[in-house]
Design a protein around this nucleic acid. Structure first.
Lengths: 358, 358
DNA sequence: CTGTTAGCGCTTTCAT
DNA sequence: ATGAAAGCGCTAACAG
């Protein structure tokens, strides 16, 4: 197995010194056109490919960005990550992706691993027991951009306004006459979960109501769990007439529970999906969704990090808050009219159009 | 900003030499217990974290594995990648993931990038215009494991037996009396697509039939495209009575086209999903699927690569072929009985059980 | 068992 | 404009 050529080989082949070869290859400093030509030619002839590890050793910069998220296969994250990757690739960076599985220890160990690999920056998604202080400590060392996470005054990141989103979605269901609304979002300790619960509760409070605390459920994000939770709620005396469910897995469980208990949507129960996915778009009836722009989250994260990546630029903390949108479809109806015709037909017409863009 | 401590600082703090500190930290060679204790303590006190870049520089090994796939957000890949990542993490490796978008040039450039970053190994998914020769050339330099790709006698990789899967699924539909079956799988130039088409055609040939070539469609994997393709087929004189569709996006498009044209499943058209996803499981009616074990693909890839990672071990080519399974659900019925009761009710009972495991 | 030393491949001064 | 040389942080070979 032949060794890969080094810059030394290139210099030798081009008949110049090592330093000149380096300058020629990087077009840095003073180099003659002849030298550039000779070196470039030699490099191409030998199939020279710079050793990024050795470059990093000197420059202290790897061109790698670490991204940590609970589960990158989660459709709610997958599209964001794709968008981050595209932006980063365009800027010449490579993405190192890992799953924390929402485990604080795992996150910490992965951050250390990434730090050891001398990544140039870090993008962190929500994780168990977050502390702004922790983030700040990491950031002192290494540019960090947080996504949907708490951060102190010094923190930089992107937030989706889950609070107002939940507020809006809950109002929508309250307007339809629902009061027994189940909120199924995992991670009440995570920033997005907490915000949703707050918005949900405030929507009730606005009208002098108090949400039934038993209807705020689903700590875990698993289909089986959501299925049995929903089934339990549906068999209770005050069964919910509406569900707000996060993502694909919980929505799946709830839809199955509804099907299993012989209830039809929207006649017997209204459903709002939090985070629009293939499932909510394609299900029959199509599921009304509270959603946000995944691609925009990704580009915002990338943009923020890129800005903090040049060492000299003072790292002023910066935040981007993205708003949510309701996509009205066919899964919600008035609570009063069981088995009756869908009331918000007018709105749904409008929703069809919005749908096209999603 | 204070500098990160180096091993030199640790050695100094522990009162030993640089070499001893290194040996103590790595428990390599002869070191006294005292030295280990002192160095470990000093390292912890200083918060020493080895510089993986410098380590790689010496050892020529980065502990990083590159993974290239057309789109990691594709549900069909996402679970496989998660599984690969878990296995690799357990073995102490980190995954570098990138999208090729099925572009040969992009793949080549990414392989070079990865090679420059001196990844220890590569996992490659299907990509445009594959050549076994190309793979072999890469492999000469760097351990490569291919997934669902062509490879020469020297190649190592994991294959899903898409040929026999498609054969089985097509037979199933032919047995139900369908002859106008549309096969919608992208990438006829990619290994999985080619194999499916071959299996599909052979199932027809077995019974002396010839498949309608116009019904083999969908080069692109996009929902809009699948939607209009399916709509076109449905409005033709010889409209298909059954569809076999790959993945989420194409299935989505076909389901929408069916809905749009007022056809119901399975009375007016039977549907088989290739690759089981949330959508096929949750759709009403639940979609009969031809699928395979995504997690097993991931662990097989990881296992194969891990075995080829130790330099001394002779890299004997090795392949793992995984079989597909049919998961019978509610989306297929006899072609003869339009608007009639579902014929394969017996099989569906059985399918319910199989379904639990999915 | 431990200290010293030579590089890994590259960039970047510092002379010339 | 170019060559020589230092050194990034670490491991491994070599003396002791």
């Amino acid at each position: 197995m032949k060794q890969r050529p080094t810059i030394k080989d290139v210099a030798q082949a081009a008949g110049v010194s090592l330093g000149t070869a380096s300058r020629a290859l990087n077009r840095a400093g003073r180099v003659s056109e002849e030298a550039i030509a000779a070196v470039t030619k030699a490099a191409r002839r030998l199939g020279y490919e710079p050793d990024a590890v050795a470059q990093s050793m000197r420059t202290r910069s790897t061109g790698v960005i670490g991204l940590l998220v609970s589960d990158f296969a989660n459709p709610l994250y997958a599209r964001i990550i794709t968008s981050v990757e595209a932006s980063m690739q365009a800027a010449g960076y490579t993405l190192l992706i890992a799953n924390t599985h929402n485990d604080r220890k795992r996150e910490k160990s992965l951050i250390d691993t990434f730090r050891g690999r001398r990544v140039d920056g870090l993008i962190l998604g929500p994780c168990e027991i977050e502390s702004a202080e922790f983030l700040e400590r990491v950031d002192a060392d290494l540019p960090v951009v947080a996504m949907d996470r708490d951060f102190s005054a010094a923190g930089t990141g992107v937030h989706v306004d889950h609070y107002h989103g939940a507020l809006q979605a809950t109002r929508y269901l309250l307007n339809l006459g629902h009061t027994e609304i189940a909120l199924m979002t995992p991670g009440s300790i995570l920033r997005p979960g907490r915000d949703r619960i707050a918005g949900f509760e405030d929507a009730f409070r606005e009208r002098g109501l108090t949400p039934n605390p038993k209807l705020i459920r689903a700590e875990k994000s698993a289909m089986d769990y959501a299925f049995s939770e929903a089934l339990g709620l549906l068999s209770a005396p005050q069964a919910p007439t509406a569900f707000m469910c996060l993502g694909t897995r919980i929505l799946s469980g709830v839809l199955q529970a509804l099907k299993h208990s012989g209830r039809s949507i929207p006649e017997d129960a209204s459903v709002v999906s939090i985070g629009d996915t293939d499932l909510s778009q394609l299900f029959t009836p199509a599921i009304t969704s509270l959603t946000w722009d995944f691609e925009a989250v990704g580009t915002a994260l990338a943009q923020l990090l890129l800005k903090r990546l040049d060492r000299d630029h003072k790292p002023e903390p910066e935040r981007i808050v993205l708003t949510t949108q309701m996509v009205l479809r066919e899964s919600c109806a008035s609570a009063r009219l069981s088995k009756a015709k869908v009331l918000d037909a007018g709105r749904q017409k409008q929703a069809q159009k919005t749908d096209q863009k999603g």
